[in-house]
Design a protein around this nucleic acid. Structure first.
Lengths: 208, 208
DNA sequence: AGAAAAAGTTTCCTTTTGGAAACTTTTGGT
DNA sequence: ACCAAAAGTTTCCAAAAGGAAACTTTTTCT
């Protein structure tokens, strides 16, 4: 195999930035950590017990007097049960106004097709991590589809009413009734049909 | 005021750490870093110039002889133009068989509290991009909470039955009935109560 | 308000990291 | 194979992090 490297595959990852050490963006780790600890209602002492780091060390980290080692950070994330991404997470400014979008029943953005009738919810917000839909499933037959549906990301689906049969690439078809749900990798080929008399109503959410 | 903290009212925070790491995960940072550097076709010397870290230091980090400080890691990520998530959670295994998890009605993992009764869905899968819950809302009063609920990520909520009042930090309370949904930034303080006689049932999904 | 307890910060000292240079291993050319 | 250059590792020391305990501030009693 040729020595294909990331630069070939992912042009976006350009390393052309030749400036040795650019200005180090001051990710406010300490501040962030303090927020998290407080949000759990923990004192330094308690956090100390959970993480195995000294009270004093935690204090210094929170006040940005020291730069914790990776080891220390692992103790932090393990002890407090948080993810690293969460810690480094974007400057995360709580927007002054907050993001919120309410969609009333049947007032989403409709996308009807012969097999589905999708209603996109929360259309007012941009940069969402998830895309929620409510759909009416018209398809009654496997043959209503030309091929597996397949796309990036995770998908979660809950049956609101009716009965569907969920087909997927590596599994036997399965019947889902009201209240049943399925979570799957959308890269795996999938499709679904309504398997009762009526159309089925489902809620589904994607995230990538 | 009672010492009610987030963990009490919001047990999901505990389990939302779904990265499959209950115990001390030995993230092979050094190994991973070496992979990345090689994939860019960089020598230690070049990486050193880009990151501002000494050749020797890089070597020691890669061979896991030392645990880099947060500062050092920032230099790494800045200099090499990679982001932290990449460093920590890259194994990125696309399972050959496909990931899928079905949760039957009322068969999720329950987490009852006085105000909520959460049922975590899709408990079999790890590394999910979303965390789906079905919940029964018992709270009838604003005062059932000690403070706003606030955590990282986006949240989507759909009312399955009953009627809820959704309180959030920067908005007036709003009443949601069956079929209504709301999408919001979970960093924004929020909480909700059942505003009809019966308990309300909701579906909600978080993603961060 | 004052005392006691709890929470948080700073000091002091030990352990560990980070960097320059010496040293070893690998690669490339002849 | 040999030698030279490049790449990588280790040594040694200065600089910084981590922990125990002293100290200060804040909270919670009476």
């Amino acid at each position: 195999m040729t020595d294909l490297n990331k630069q070939d595959v992912y042009p976006s990852m350009k390393i052309s930035n030749d400036r040795g050490s650019e200005k180090i963006e001051p990710v406010k780790l300490g501040q962030r950590l303090k927020e998290i600890r407080k949000s759990f209602g923990l004192t330094l002492e308690e956090a100390s017990k959970k993480t195995g780091l000294a009270r004093s060390t935690l204090s210094k980290i929170e006040n940005e007097q020291i730069s914790p080692t990776f080891q220390a950070m692992q103790k932090l994330t393990n002890g407090l049960q948080i993810d690293l991404p969460q810690l480094f997470a974007p400057p995360k400014q709580v927007s002054a106004t907050g993001r919120r979008d309410i969609t009333r029943n049947n007032e989403g953005k409709a996308h009807p097709t012969s097999t589905y009738e999708h209603e996109l919810l929360a259309t007012q917000l941009t940069n969402k991590k998830m895309m929620p839909f409510k759909s009416r499933i018209r398809a009654r037959d496997f043959a209503d589809y030309s091929d597996w549906i397949r796309h990036a990301g995770d998908e979660f689906l809950l049956v609101l009413s009716g009965e569907i049969t969920f087909f997927s690439e590596f599994y036997e078809p399965v019947t889902l009734n009201e209240g049943d749900s399925v979570y799957y990798d959308a890269n795996m080929g999938h499709m679904l049909i309504s398997s009762s008399e009526e159309d089925a109503l489902i809620l589904w959410v994607t995230a990538s």
